[in-house]
Each structure stands twice: as C-alpha cells, then as structure tokens.
Computed example of a mutant assay.
Amino acid sequence: MTTAASVEASGDSGGSEGSHGGDDSPYALSHLDALESEAVHIFREVAGEFERPVILFSGGKDSIVMLHLALKAFAPAPVPFSLLHVDTGHNFPEVIDYRDRTVARHGLRLHVASVQDYIDRGVLRERPDGTRNPLQTLPLTEKIQAERFDAVFGGGRRDEEKARAKERVFSLRDEFSQWDPRRQRPELWQLYNGRHAPGEHVRVFPLSNWTELDVWQYIAREGIELPEIYFAHERDVFKRSGMWLTAGDWGGPKDGEDVERRQVRYRTVGDMSCTGAVESDATTLADVITEIAASRLTERGATRADDKLSEAAMEDRKREGYF
C-alpha cells in the first residue's frame, strides 16, 4: 500500500525526459527533478555553512520527504545531521512507531523534546481544549539553545498557510528564537545568506517551493514508505468544529460528541487533539494523488484546528519561535 504506484493520474512521469512549459529537450528537468535539485542544493549549502544543523523529524510526510532528500544529498556518506522531534505526548502511535523504525534503519541520532516533561515540571499547563500543539514552542526553542543548533531544517511549504508563504528558505531567528518578518533577507539567484550572531540561528525550509501535490507525486516516484494513517482506513472518530478527530485520553470526546466508525485518512499529521481526518476511499498513492489534485482546500486549512484559533494564529506562533 505504501510502495510506488502508477501515477498517471498526476500527469507527471517523474522522469528526466520532457519538462513543463513545452521544452522537449531530453536534457530538461521535470518539475519534480527541479524541486529535488533545489532541495539537495539547500542541504549541501547548509552543511558547508553551519556547524550544528539538525532536521526536524516527526514521522509526518513532509519530514519524511525532507529526510529522503537529505539521504540523497550526501549518499553514499551518512547524513551529517541529527534529528529533532518535539513530542506532544498526544501523537499518533503509528507515526511514532514509524519515526523510531526510520531512525534505527538509518542509524541516525534522535533528540526528543517532550511537552509532557514540561507539564510534569509545572513549566507548562494543559490548555482547556486539550490541544498541545501551541505548547511545543518552549520545548523546541530550549532544545535548540541547549544543543546549540545553528540551523534547523523544517518541512514547511509556502502553499500550506499564508504566514508560511512569507518565509524565505533561510529564515533568521533571534537569540530568543523569535521571527521578525522585517528581517527577511533577499534570496536572488538561489543565493542564501546564513550569517547570524551568537545565540541566533536559521530555520531552513528545503520544501518551500513544493506543493502538497508535488510531495505526493515525489513519494510515488521515489517509492517512499509512509505511516499507514495517510491512506484510507476505518477509525473511531467524533466530530468537533467540523472536523473528524480521533478519540483518545487527550480530552475527547466530550458530552454530546458521539464516536462513529468512519473510513478516513489524514492529509497532515500533528497532535491528535487538533489534527482532523478526512473521509476518503484513497487506499493507494494513485488514489491519494487524484484526491489531492481535485481538492480546493489546503491540508492545514481543512484539517488543523490549531490554525483556526485566530486569523493570524500561525504567524503569532511563528513570531514566538514555532515553525
């Protein structure tokens, strides 16, 4: 189910022949090849410019593609970066299992910043709605500072959300890990400026110019394994604020929220308390690609409750240090 499949529905062969825009040259890159080449260049640029980079890896599809690109960028040598995951304690078990298998398979080092540890110490408090996604900022920023990471790779894409659309590929964070859009640097001709003062660091987004459809087409072309929750399956869910949420001990369902057995899949994966499933019959990569191509809602706009807290919810969190 998670291996490469026919992607004729996507309209792109993923090969090296032909390109968009009518160029029939056998040496022209397809759009996926061009995106891959750009991302590989970014990884190598960071490896040459920074001393202690780290890759954010949650086991979600974007971080999976990002790690796959990093493996390609440095093959046959090992990836010269460790991984970092901010664990809310409310993650999907299937995704955590995938994360741990991947780390073991590639012999990588994984740093985990636990939201639960901060709650147990009284540094953070549970929110009334049960979601822990907004609580990730402090564990993330303190782990970056403690480990002295100077470049942090994230899987954010500009098509996901309007605050992320403002980001450069290299995005400077101050000594408090905060983001100031006014300090964005120009990136003409793919020239990236990684200069930063002591205590500052740079967030790096190799998938900035990818779309959700690009990600799925690339997964199909490369035969990348994914957690099974990205494909249609039966699950106990309940409806809240127009989204199907997974029942669990994080605080749902409440009185009046009935649990139903539905066939669903996930377009994006985060905290169980704020990540909604979509009803779907897509059990293969080709089915998912067809479904995404027809969608008129971004994955975060359709299935992430934490982005619906306010009109500027994501930008507010980014200014505080969130990705």
Rank of each mutant, 00 (worst) to 15 (best):
T3S: 11
A4N: 10
V7F: 15
G11A: 12
S19F: 08
G21Y: 03
G22W: 07
D23N: 15
A28C: 15
A28S: 11
D33R: 01
D33H: 07
L35S: 04
E36G: 11
V40P: 15
R44S: 08
V46N: 02
G48W: 08
E49N: 14
E51N: 07
P53F: 07
P53Y: 03
I55S: 11
L56A: 15
G59K: 05
G60K: 03
D62R: 07
I64M: 01
I64D: 00
H68M: 12
L69A: 04
A70D: 08
A70S: 13
K72T: 09
F74V: 02
A75Q: 08
P76Y: 03
T88Q: 00
F92L: 10
E94I: 07
V95E: 05
R99G: 02
R101F: 05
V103D: 07
H106A: 00
H106S: 10
R109F: 14
L110D: 14
V112C: 05
D120H: 07
R125W: 01
D129C: 15
R132N: 02
R132P: 01
N133M: 13
Q136P: 00
P139S: 09
E142N: 14
K143I: 09
F149T: 06
D150K: 03
A151P: 12
G154A: 12
G154E: 09
E160G: 05
E160D: 14
V169R: 05
S171R: 04
L172S: 12
R173Y: 11
F176L: 15
F176N: 15
Q178S: 14
W179N: 05
P181H: 02
R183C: 14
R185K: 11
P186K: 06
P186G: 14
P186M: 05
N193S: 03
E200C: 14
H201R: 01
V202R: 06
F205S: 03
N209V: 01
W210R: 08
W210V: 10
E212P: 10
L213D: 07
V215E: 00
R221E: 10
E225N: 14
L226G: 00
E228Q: 13
I229R: 08
F231H: 07
A232D: 00
H233C: 08
H233K: 03
H233F: 05
H233N: 08
E234D: 11
F238N: 03
G242H: 05
G251F: 04
E257H: 01
R261N: 14
R265C: 08
R265K: 02
T268S: 13
D271G: 07
C274G: 05
A277F: 13
V278Y: 02
S280W: 04
D287W: 02
V288M: 13
I289K: 06
S295E: 11
R296S: 11
T298R: 00
E299C: 08
T303H: 11
R304L: 13
S310L: 09
S310I: 04
A313D: 06
E315N: 11
R319S: 15
E320D: 10
Y322D: 15
